[in-house]
């Protein structure tokens, strides 16, 4: 894992105000200093190791801790610049949390960060998969039109899609552990899995509106 080689320098960075080592790139958890940050790395914002697997409990704990340090209310009596800095810190914290707490968004971020293909680079899916998507849509269309065919079609489709979703999610974890380096074919595979998951989730969402 190349990441570990580059990382120590970062995590050893010290807070300019209290001199203690910095855990997060958003705020110093020791003295509460807000860090002027244009850091886009959600893992660094939370001071956790860059990996697909994230400990949800630890993430929550860190969020609370960091929220306490950056909440704009605590800077109400201070100058405008400090208040604005707190607002910026809070919003970058929230943005980081959104990514870290969502399997799909985390995988998406990791593929790009590891130098893998972007969404636009890797859009086309195999014909066989797209044919399947056509078939899902045909079932959905029939259900929308009142459904003359198989009454269980929607239930069958739902369980197929759920199974496909589980497979792709497990695949994401497998292909991103340990994290592939740039050029690794697994990054392309993950991008394809993310594409597949978007089609799957869209179809499941459609079923949701049909059966509500």
């Amino acid at each position: 894992m190349e990441i570990d080689v580059a990382e120590p320098e970062r995590s050893q960075a010290a807070c300019e105000r209290c001199g203690r080592p910095l855990e997060s790139t958003v705020a110093c958890l020791e003295c509460g200093a807000l860090l002027r940050t244009d850091e886009e790395d959600p893992f660094r914002a939370f001071g956790i190791e860059r990996a697909f697997e994230v400990d949800a409990k630890l993430l929550r704990k860190k969020l609370l801790k960091l929220q306490r340090a950056t909440h704009p209310d605590f800077f109400a009596t201070q100058g405008e610049a400090e208040r604005e800095a707190a607002e910026r810190a809070t919003s970058s914290l929230n943005a980081a949390f959104e990514i870290l707490s969502d399997d799909l968004r985390r995988a998406d971020w990791l593929v790009s960060a590891q130098g893998g293909p972007s969404r636009d680079d890797e859009r086309q899916m195999p014909q066989a998969f797209l044919m399947e998507v056509m078939e899902w849509n045909e079932v959905l269309e029939e259900a929308r039109d009142g459904g003359t065919g198989d009454p269980n079609a929607l239930a069958t489709l739902t369980s197929d899609l759920d199974a496909a979703r589980t497979t792709e999610l497990a695949g994401l974890e497998r292909d991103l552990t340990p994290l592939p380096a740039a050029g690794d074919e697994r990054l392309r595979t993950v991008r394809r899995r993310l594409n597949a998951l978007r089609y799957i989730d869209r179809a499941l969402g459609e079923i949701g509106t049909l059966t509500r």
């Binding site: 969404r119 899916m125 797209l130 044919m131 056509m134 269309e141 978007r198 179809a203």
Partner: peptide, 30 residues
Amino acid sequence: VVGAPECGDVMKLQIEVEGDTIVDAKFKTF
């Protein structure tokens, strides 16, 4: 068959060819 992952659209386009000429074409798009 082609698709756009960001919106979930899928499009199937078929051609029937005689010699080098497309004599018929059909599509189905969701």
